[in-house]
């Protein structure tokens, strides 16, 4: 089973995680057109790349961000949302 790096719990088996999709920046709803809002809601960056994704460690209830290559399934790094990946 794939191992997923949780910034709090370390490497844990995939079964303990829930995948939360790519990280998307929500635009200011008042400032965007209907079409731009629809684009935010429905459209995704589906192509192969290293992407920032939400992952959730179910037993401990930790959401975090992982940078993962969705072609090779390699986790580049992971960090808590508030850490922004710089630390």
């Amino acid at each position: 089973m794939k191992l997923v790096p949780c910034p709090v719990n370390g490497l844990r088996p995939l079964q303990e995680f829930h995948f939360g999709g790519e990280v998307r920046d929500m635009p200011d709803g008042e400032a965007v057109s209907d079409a731009e809002w629809a684009d935010y809601v429905f459209h995704r960056r589906g192509e192969g790349a290293v992407k920032r994704e939400w992952w959730y460690h179910v037993p401990s209830g930790v959401w975090f961000i992982a940078e993962r290559d969705n072609r090779t399934d390699e986790f580049v790094r992971s960090y808590l949302y508030e850490e922004n990946g710089d630390g």
Partner: peptide, 10 residues
């Protein structure tokens, strides 16, 4: 609950 946790962060 899980989604609430995420929204709290977001």
């Amino acid at each position: 609950y899980r989604e609430m946790q995420r929204w709290a962060l977001l």
